[in-house]
């Protein structure tokens, strides 16, 4: 049954990868596609390094890892797409772009603070980082005022996280 499960998981992997690429399809010609590639490369490297370690694992453990990678990859790729469509739905308006900025930072912070769930940690950090890259490109297009808001917000988040997370280590 475990071997069957391992074989039968491939159609679902193919479907997820297909969905992601179908969603990316209209992004690539715009040049923004280049920003998604590093995430894909990091993901492939992660899978390769983990696969070497998993050579001696039992099948059930390998299936579990495969599910984790699949879910991590899907969340990390779908969140930027979600943000992109969300921003597009409101005609690239500044308030929604700022909401996207908040989402990006929220994802990264959630990932950093999440315990006992590496799927959420990796997917949120990778997904959040791509969201931020996309949002900052959008903000850059909106002019100086928007850039100031974005930079201020980024600084505020960095300071807040440092105060909360690093306080004990510094005192």
């Amino acid at each position: 049954m475990e071997i069957a499960a391992l074989i039968l998981i491939w159609p679902f992997i193919l479907l997820t990868a297909g969905l992601v690429f179908a969603a990316f399809y209209d992004v690539f010609p715009s040049g923004l596609g280049l920003f998604w590639l590093p995430a894909l490369v990091i993901f492939i490297l992660l899978v390769r390094s983990r696969n070497k370690a998993s050579e001696d694992m039992v099948l059930s453990k390998q299936i579990f890892l495969l599910k984790k990678f699949l879910t991590t990859f899907s969340i990390a790729m779908l969140f930027p797409i979600f943000t992109r469509y969300l921003v597009g739905s409101f005609d690239n308006s500044l308030p929604v772009i700022i909401v996207g900025l908040i989402i990006g930072f929220a994802l990264i912070i959630w990932g950093m603070f999440m315990e006992r769930n590496k799927t959420i940690v990796y997917s949120n950090i990778i997904g959040g980082a791509i969201v931020l890259v996309y949002i900052f490109i959008k903000i850059w297009e909106l002019g100086e005022g928007a850039r100031i808001i974005a930079a201020s917000f980024g600084l505020l988040v960095a300071v807040a996280v440092s105060i909360i997370k690093l306080k004990d280590k510094l005192t």
Partner: peptide, 18 residues
Amino acid sequence: VGGALIVLYFIALLKLSD
């Protein structure tokens, strides 16, 4: 995409924890 993300997060939180 939002619906797919909600489902994936449920799976990650309930079935794929450490």
